[in-house]
């Protein structure tokens, strides 16, 4: 089957939005055209670079009183002219494209945002426009915001090349990180820590910011398989390394799908947490600690884990979880790539 070329073009402002069937529960399938009467926000994104994005859009949906639809790249994206990138569309209540932005490396230009906002002015409200409304205004503003947010996150697939001569990085240059097996290219100042780069720029929020001074261990990640504190190193220093966060821990040990890393399962089995804030750091620290040359005793675990603080006091469960993993020959030396 060939795709007619006109379907690859980005729909014009004011043209009818290409209709498609919305994903939903079986028996509840609806089409985009059935949502008319209210504005709809469409966000396209390549899912491979940011698993937190879908959650972001789900949050928008909870906050807004109109639908925000998050779509992967695929046949629908191609019908909206989005081949392999990120884009945001606002569909008005009459089912027509009222604003669009294809996300590149730059945020929407002031002109584009001005156009979107001027479209919301009363003079532009036509009797047949499908009804500009407060909701449509909010949808457009949120879409512009989303487009800017996406810009910060967009990954540029450039090969990593090791510099031959001295390289000096000033402000806001591309920093290339390999996180959980994926290449990320982020515009960062040198003063951005690895923790902030992961959380605030890449949307990888598993590593937590507790003290931000290396005292609590909540930000623990693996670099080349070793546990480190992501708050005490700059992202620019970690280029070319294999960075693993809690999001990628199971996969790094060979698990597939939703399967957990043995240490994650052990923390569940032994109640190794209460509030959970320190837990991703505890698990990352523990998963690396079992590969270190510690003795077999509970006290050895306590000593090895002293850089991870738990305010809830889940320590007995944490020690039990780690000892379970260490005593099981199948999981004791479960390594990473």
């Amino acid at each position: 089957m060939t795709t007619p070329p006109e379907e690859c073009r980005v729909p014009e402002i004011g043209s009818e939005a290409p209709d498609f069937e919305l994903a939903g529960h079986p028996g509840q399938r609806r089409r985009l055209s059935e949502l008319r009467g209210a504005p709809v926000l469409l966000a396209f994104h390549p899912s491979h670079w940011d698993p937190s994005w879908a959650e972001c859009v789900r949050m928008y949906n909870r906050m807004l009183d109109f639908p925000a639809i998050c779509l992967d790249t695929g046949p629908i994206a191609r019908r909206y002219g989005v081949a392999d990138g990120a884009a945001v569309f606002v569909i008005d209540g009459a089912g027509r494209v009222s604003w669009r932005h294809t996300v590149g490396v730059a945020p929407p230009s002031p002109n584009e945002v001005a156009e979107a906002l001027s479209a919301c002015l009363p003079t532009s409200v036509g009797a047949d426009s499908g009804g500009w409304s407060r909701r449509h205004f909010v949808a457009t503003v949120v879409a512009a915001t989303l487009a800017i947010a996406l810009t910060r996150r967009v990954a540029r697939a450039e090969p990593i090349t090791r510099p031959r001569a001295a390289t000096t990085v000033g402000s806001g240059e591309a920093v290339k990180l390999r996180v959980n097996g994926r290449e990320l290219s982020l515009d960062l100042e040198p003063r951005v820590t690895l923790l902030d780069a992961l959380r605030e720029y890449a949307g990888i929020t598993g590593p937590k910011k507790g003290c931000d001074h290396g005292q609590c261990g909540a930000c623990t990640v693996h670099v080349n398989g070793r546990r480190i504190l992501s708050c005490l190193t700059f992202a620019v220093m970690q280029q070319g390394k294999e960075i693993t966060t809690i999001e990628g821990l199971a996969a790094s040990a060979g698990a597939s799908g939703d399967a957990l890393h043995p240490m994650q399962q052990a923390f569940i089995d032994h109640d190794g947490f209460q509030c959970g804030y320190c837990t991703s750091g505890q698990i990352m620290s523990a998963a690396a600690m079992v590969r270190e040359a510690w003795g077999p005793a509970d006290d050895d675990v306590r000593e090895a884990m002293s850089g991870n603080i738990c305010r809830c006091g889940a320590y007995p469960g944490i020690v039990a979880a780690i000892q379970t993993v260490r005593k099981n020959p199948a999981t004791a030396q479960r390594g990473q790539r």
Binding site: A166, T167, V169, E189, P190, R191, F234, M237
Partner: peptide, 27 residues
């Protein structure tokens, strides 16, 4: 944190020369 520029030197010579400038720290 105050802004700074970051240099990854290619040699010890480069590092020591760059490190001798004022307001410079090795990391």
């Amino acid at each position: 944190m105050k802004p700074f520029d970051y240099t990854a030197p290619a040699s010890l010579d480069e590092a020591t020369r760059a490190g001798a400038r004022p307001a410079t720290r090795f990391i």
